[in-house]
Design a protein around this nucleic acid. Sequence first.
DNA 1: GTCTATAGTGTGATAGAC
DNA 2: GTCTATCACACTATAGAC
Lengths: 228, 228
Amino acid sequence: MPHMGLQERRTEQRREQRERILGVSRDIVKREGFASLSMRKLAEAIDYSPAALYLHFRSRGEIARALCMEGHARLRETFLAHTRIADPAARLNAMARTYVEFGLAEPETYRLMFMEPAGLAETASDAVDKAAEPGAATLSLIADVFVELRAADWLPPHAAPTACAEGLWANLHGIVALKLNRASLPETPVATLVELSLDAWFAPANGTEPRGTEPRSNSATRPDTSTR
Amino acid sequence: MPHMGLQERRTEQRREQRERILGVSRDIVKREGFASLSMRKLAEAIDYSPAALYLHFRSRGEIARALCMEGHARLRETFLAHTRIADPAARLNAMARTYVEFGLAEPETYRLMFMEPAGLAETASDAVDKAAEPGAATLSLIADVFVELRAADWLPPHAAPTACAEGLWANLHGIVALKLNRASLPETPVATLVELSLDAWFAPANGTEPRGTEPRSNSATRPDTSTR
DNA sequence: GTCTATAGTGTGATAGAC
DNA sequence: GTCTATCACACTATAGAC
């Protein structure tokens, strides 16, 4: 980029450094968790003095917020990748697995995103603006599926789609959260729990083929659903 | 207690003071969360010097552990109260509600019990002894219900009872955990989510009467059903 | 912009006098 | 047993020289 004014050069450099800080922060968080990301440690890692950090971020919390948004963006991207799956049941299946996989693959990031007391990643302005809740965007993709399922008459008419979406979300979050914090939940492997949860909230019709009329029985993985 | 030897007197006093410390700790945690329970603050609250605390507790973590066990004991007690409910479906219903109510009524205690990174309330010896996981006792009461349900042929034969129990537990935990951390989950009231979850994991057959044959549809006791 | 130096506050835990 | 005093840290954030 040869023809750049001094002004552009400056801001470009700034952006790069900000990105660098963020990158190192991300690594530290991934390895040791946000709790152990201190400004000193971060400064040492990027080979600057602690004070320099405050030229790019107002506070430690702002770094948290940035990393949090990054995480949500990544998660949302993997969700969007599944958007192309036509069959809503199969899509739901894929999204659920993806969600849990994300949590298990990056426990500390997941913690920062979903398991930290609310205030951490919030700007004062965000507190007012409800739409800023970043999880909402992701959740809405799940909700969409339930809307479709409902439209295709695969859902009992009394169940509100968004409520189902939140219910399933809570279920998946519970699985991840318990797994991350306690060595417990030892009895049942996570994969099994996810299967069961999908069955519970919507028998998954794993066999790609929607058949609305027939009583649900999705034998692919699980031969029977007599409970519903 | 007039006829108490000096020895007994001593240990009795010790026990009382320990209880006092624990009581104040409990209050602080309930109000401000365990994170903000410092030895200094605690000492001031009981009007002793910080050093005195270490005569009764080896460390701050040991206080955490004690409070944690207290919490589990309380929760388990409310569960045991429901044990007398004969109909397993109704019992499951009651337990689930109780669980969530507990979490919402005492968020900070719940956090300490279930949402804190594992190491907090663990003794080195506990780490080895798996049975020491205190949640296990509570969970087993839920598992029992599923065993009964299975025995009564209310459950599909492929579903392992303990797996179902853990699945439902994860679901309830997810509801509580999301509610405690984010102001989000705004769309659907918690009560509704719990209803849906119970329906999902086992349509509750609230109408006391087990009827294995009929397809489950349980609007009996819950008039509020519009959402479901 | 970047540094050094430091203010200011917090923490858990302990030594040693009384 | 209880206290005072303190160790040995950690932290965020800022002031002021260069």
